[in-house]
Design a binder for these strands. Structure first.
Lengths: 351, 351
DNA sequence: TTGTACGCGTTATCAC
DNA sequence: GTGATAACGCGTACAA
């Protein structure tokens, strides 16, 4: 529990010299710097983070603001968190978890006014998110993980849903599929303006419309059971469907299980492509899922890096980073039944 | 940015009165308390957490010390983290993530000496963990999530592996199985003294020996691929096995897929019981896995509660909390083939 | 019941 | 290149 005072006394210099030797905020002669170093080593001195924060008005703490939604943090959110914590540490910052409950506004305000954090990482962003206004007004540096509806002037790192859906559908349509359904997150999440649900839905509809194909979107809770129920209903009402694009890990695995159980073959009868997922999740299924993996670690690193840059020099360019999911081709996508790839639908029976 | 000074001036009292009105550390007349309250509301005053910490020598921060192991935090660790953060928040504390890399000792020491945290939650505890010694010497309050080999004098919350394995095997043996294999985590994790791997292995061996049954333990990396490879090798060398107790989510799902693919029926030919898992993971498989679910949220709450209790009154009793996994009966366990339950093995063919 | 004044361990602004 | 010393915003012993 040695303090700067002790170090200064032992080294025979003033406290300010010790401080400057430590931070390098002003030049110190090599001789005295060495003396200070020796004294610090001898006493096992470590600067007190709190005192430093009070005096410098910088805490080197980043708060991760996450709403405690029904399912907690998702699997990919975990990868995000560890990558973010790691990156923060590398730059000498700490990451504190700031769960917020029902009183989003009040708790966000508390975070801001307590001056505990130099910057904020906003998780689970919705299209119209009340936290954003508060943070702007308070002039607290922040980066969105996700995007609001209008985030032109805001720093964000998000998944490029547009590109992801395009890549997904190019793969599926390229195989010859024409009747494709989207199995998405819950209707509730869509109505709440949850970015991934809304954006993927829109991108899907747009792509299908542009290619003269019909749009079937099925919303489904995040559970294998819901996924099982979903496919039953889906193929009851839309028996012509030959491919499923899914964005819902739990439901996807349930759906695959149910399809197999009901006698359908994958991918011979039905193709399945799971987006915003990961090969690790895909490997849990049999046959192994073709997935497009969410860039959780990249987003974690990007978000923290940009946030710290902004904290340390407010004038940097705005971060608008969109990272697409990467395709990992596995066993659940193939050509549709009774039809060779690239042929037009509704054609006469091939001889 | 209002400070106590501003509040005091506006309320016409001294700063100390504001402070006491806030903390209740000494009685304040109802009249002045009301005046102070009005002033605080008017200014939107929030106490500065850092200044408060420096003066009180308490930060109300808990550090979660986790080694960045190969797989990052596991799925149940995520539930643990959110429950811990939530509980901390309810008690007015914050949870900061403290990932440590290769220099475990150095980074733990840094955490301690920086005085940023009032207490530490030690994650991924190994039987012989160097972090424990450091924390003891520094007299920093800490709670283990897991246990060292000798943790008599330490606070810990851990899974009751002994009871979990007993419950698991009573279920399996009760169904009539006699040839049971354990599919566990990697050999590496065992050799590193990773508690779950070691303790479950020991409990398994002991139970089997006590019941006159042979012990087969197979170590396996945490991936579906490794699980697939494992069952192939396992049933090659031990074709008599009729039940698998597993502790390795990814490998289990891979193993189930591979068993089905190789023509075996579950549970008709092989029973599978996945421990230290969860029904959510179990529901990802087809047929749905019988699981024993890890008490992640309970451990998170218990660990944080006990740690805060210790921080706030150092004299409380030592926490030795062992929580068993709960059995969730589903579709992957049943009686072994060619044999009714509870009959002795090696009997003549039933007519 | 309330006010004064010092201390917490740094950083940063003056001087020299 | 170095040293005093005033903030930083709050807690708390002591005094009234």
């Amino acid at each position: 529990m040695a303090t700067m005072h002790d170090v200064a006394k032992l080294a025979g210099v003033s406290v300010s010299t010790v401080s400057y030797a430590l931070t390098g905020a002003r030049p110190v002669s090599e001789k005295t710097r060495a003396r200070v170093q020796v004294a610090m080593d001898e006493l096992g001195y470590q600067p007190n983070a709190i005192a430093r924060s009070l005096a410098s008005r910088r805490t080197r703490i980043i708060a991760m603001l996450f709403p405690s939604i029904e399912r907690g943090l998702s699997g990919t959110a975990l990868e995000f968190v560890t990558a973010a914590a790691e990156t923060a540490r590398e730059r000498g910052y700490h990451l504190v978890l700031w769960p917020i409950g029902d009183d989003e506004v009040g708790e966000t305000r508390a975070l801001i006014h307590q001056h505990l954090a130099d910057g904020v990482l906003v998780m689970e962003v919705r299209l119209d998110d009340p936290r954003v206004g508060l943070l702007r007004e308070s002039r607290t540096p922040f980066t969105l993980i996700g995007r609001t509806a209008d985030s032109e002037a805001l720093d964000y790192a998000d998944i490029d849903f547009e590109a992801t859906v395009r890549d997904a559908l190019e793969h599926i349509v390229g195989l010859g599929h024409r009747h494709i359904a989207l199995l998405s997150h819950s209707k509730t999440s869509h109505d709440a303006g949850y970015g991934p649900t809304v954006r993927v839905g829109e991108a899907f509809s747009r792509y299908m419309a542009e290619h003269g194909l019909g749009t079937v979107i099925y919303h489904c809770d995040d559970s294998a059971d819901a996924g099982r129920a979903a496919v039953n209903e889906l193929f009851d009402t839309n028996p012509e469907i030959t491919a499923l694009v899914t964005m819902n890990d739990s439901a996807t695995l349930g759906a695959v299980a149910e399809l197999l159980e009901s006698g359908r073959r994958i991918p011979d009868d039905i193709s399945v492509l799971s987006i915003v997922s990961s090969p690790r999740v895909g490997a849990l299924s049999h046959p192994r899922l073709t997935t497009m993996s969410a860039p959780g670690p990249e987003l974690g690193r990007l978000g923290v890096t940009s946030l710290i840059d902004r904290i340390e020099s407010g004038d940097r360019a705005i971060l608008h980073e969109l990272v697409p999911c990467r395709l990992d081709l596995q066993a659940t996508t193939g050509v549709p039944p009774d039809r060779a790839p690239y042929r037009r639908p509704r054609t006469a029976n091939p001889s």
